[in-house]
Amino acid sequence: MDDDGGIERLPRGRHGLSPEFVARNQRERLIAGLIQALYEVGYQKTTVSLIGKRAAVSKSDFYRHFGSKDECFVAAYDVAVERIRGQLLAACQEAEGGEWPQRIRSALAALLELFAAEPALASIALVEGLRAGRGVYDRYQVAVESFVVLMREGAPLGPEGTPVPEATDEAVVGGIASMLGRRVLAGEAERLSELFPEILEFALAAHLGAEEARRIVSAG
């Protein structure tokens, strides 16, 4: 990204790039431009021309890719969720073969790093997506549910020796998402990594009990 928060544009004139490449690059820039604009000024004030400005793409080119701001928003939301999912899956894979707490630790650390490095991404995923109305809310719900599945893979029985109900993990994941959203809304996205130990403790507690979760977290 350059100084005014735009996304690097392709060289002008004859560059020998295929039209498909140029189109794909433009589309990606528009999506990144919307995510950036949204973070700066919020949904209401994110206009097509501001998106174009951030993306260094003309308004008429915008309409070649998207029918409206909302259409671009939905596309951007899907991209944001895919980024998050990719980050989580990669972290889980890295911890492959390890115990369940290790996998959760790795996934959570990766998630918070991503949000801290890209506050605008955290904002669309956790805050703006919920505010955009029914269509995007459904996507938020699907994403949360898929993270619940990920969290339950290989999870141990609860502290009482019985399986932890799915609703509990839904509450854990939904609760973490909500708490992170409140922090992002308060402008604290860059500092989310500081919350790593306490969120990890919270995420582990439902399956391991509060004391064991605390022990694992403080053992590092």
């Binding site: 609703a167 939904g174 609760g175 919350l195 130990p197 919270f202």
Partner: peptide, 19 residues
Amino acid sequence: LPDTIEESLAGGVAWILQL
């Protein structure tokens, strides 16, 4: 207990109720 715990708990309850 962690400082953020009540935020996560209230958020988790709200999420289940919203579903």
